[in-house]
């Protein structure tokens, strides 16, 4: 499968590493030059230096033949727009996006993005389960 990942942060890097070790073809887009160099030195020449235009960066990465697009930046709006471009304009088969708020997650799921993962919610849930493992009772109804 050809997978394009937007964002070479910790999440983008780890998922790229795993996909590569599973013999998938991967490209990682980031606008930070040193992050791209780090990726090229450690995972192979798979980085694409993004420019100001999202659509340009996606094209440079070969979005027209992508099976899966994953948006992992810190910026919810960039994640949303890149997924929309990937799916609705360049016809990528699947799109995934991380988000940082419950409401934006809900919004993104109504606009053709296959799955959204709310990072903050996941960390909170994980923390709660660990707190419970420590034997501390907490009520999580809300």
């Amino acid at each position: 499968m050809y997978v394009i990942i937007l964002g070479a942060g910790k999440i983008g890097y780890s998922i790229a590493e795993i996909l590569i070790s599973n013999q998938h073809e991967v490209a990682v887009i980031d606008s930070n030059k040193s992050k791209c160099e780090y990726i090229d030195n450690t995972l192979g020449s798979i980085s694409v230096l993004g420019d100001q235009s999202l659509s340009n960066s996606l094209l440079k990465a070969g979005i027209t033949r992508a099976d899966l697009f994953i948006a992992t930046t810190k910026n919810d709006s960039e994640n949303m727009l890149s997924c929309q471009l990937a799916k609705d304009y360049y016809n990528a088969k699947f799109t995934l996006s991380i988000t940082h708020s419950k409401e934006i997650s809900r919004l993104l799921e109504t606009i053709n993005i296959n799955y959204t993962i709310n990072v903050n919610q996941h960390i909170t849930n994980e923390l709660i389960s660990k707190i419970k493992l420590l034997g501390i009772n907490i009520n999580t109804k809300n």
Partner: peptide, 30 residues
Amino acid sequence: NDSTNALISQIFKNEFNISKIICKINDQIT
């Protein structure tokens, strides 16, 4: 910022009952 404008437009479309949503998007493809 194009992507900020895109997200806000999408929020207005999905969450509000507003007939006209006008947004500035400078990137040609977007």
